[in-house]
Design a binder for these strands. Structure first.
Lengths: 124, 124
DNA sequence: CGCACCTTGACAATGTTTTGGTAACGTTGC
DNA sequence: GCAACGTTACCAAAACATTGTCAAGGTGCG
């Protein structure tokens, strides 16, 4: 009785069973297993899964990116290397639009969104 | 004369001209432009591009991930949200293989590589 | 036992990112 | 002015991420 099965968890979190397995495999959620190997979802896991949904939707990124963020925490070498590279940024060009790249991350999506239906620009 | 043109830069860094434009657009490298709009690559940029290559190859990730790392630096809200979610990790399950997820990031590749042609396993 | 659930693994459809090519047009240098 | 380069903008192929589905087999329970 210690926890819901995958299908029940799917029902209450909005993820599909397939995705729940994917998320576990991605290392984003650790689960207890029943003696026979069934995944068991406790209240904490369920909460975490719901929060995860909001997080991805709200901040506009995906599981892969979150996985990388996790990697950055757990691999000091990786973190160091990435930071070192990013720190070396203060570029030659004095005249750089500092928020230029920001557009990029958004446009990736908007490009398609815009293509889909050309309306709905007011939502922003 | 202040800096190489894109094709010259490509030649000395190993990136294709196409990729050099992509990298700039991704906000990973800021460039000076000539009066007529030509991208100009100085020694620093060239060095940065070479370093970038090594970094990605050595730590096994891509431009998108680096872009996200950059996003994490520049968007406090994002960083806070991600950290908050990850901090809530100390899971129910006491018995978690701590390096389990690591396999994932690697297997992603191997899966397809193996599927491609079942030969050529010796190349590794 | 039988039925509905679970497991892993594979194959595939879809969506997105990465990368290349090409077209249309401006720049540089001889 | 012409050849060889640069620019942006677009289309397309390849790679990867996301998601579904199905097969083969184990588990739980009436």
């Amino acid at each position: 009785m210690e926890g819901l099965t995958i299908q029940e968890a799917a029902a209450t979190t909005g993820w599909s069973p397939r995705m729940l397995r994917y998320i576990e495999r991605a290392g984003l959620l650790a689960l207890v297993r029943s003696p026979s190997g069934y995944r068991l979802y406790g209240p904490e896991q369920l909460q975490r899964l719901r929060t995860l949904r909001e997080l991805l939707a709200r901040m506009n990124f995906g599981l892969a990116e979150l996985g990388f963020a996790m990697r950055l925490r757990r691999e000091p070498e990786l973190r160091a290397a990435v930071n070192e590279w990013l720190d070396a940024a203060p570029e030659r060009p004095e005249h750089v639009a500092p928020d230029d790249w920001l557009r990029w991350e958004q446009e990736k999506h908007q490009a398609l969104i815009a293509a889909a239906h050309t309306t709905e620009m007011e939502m922003a």
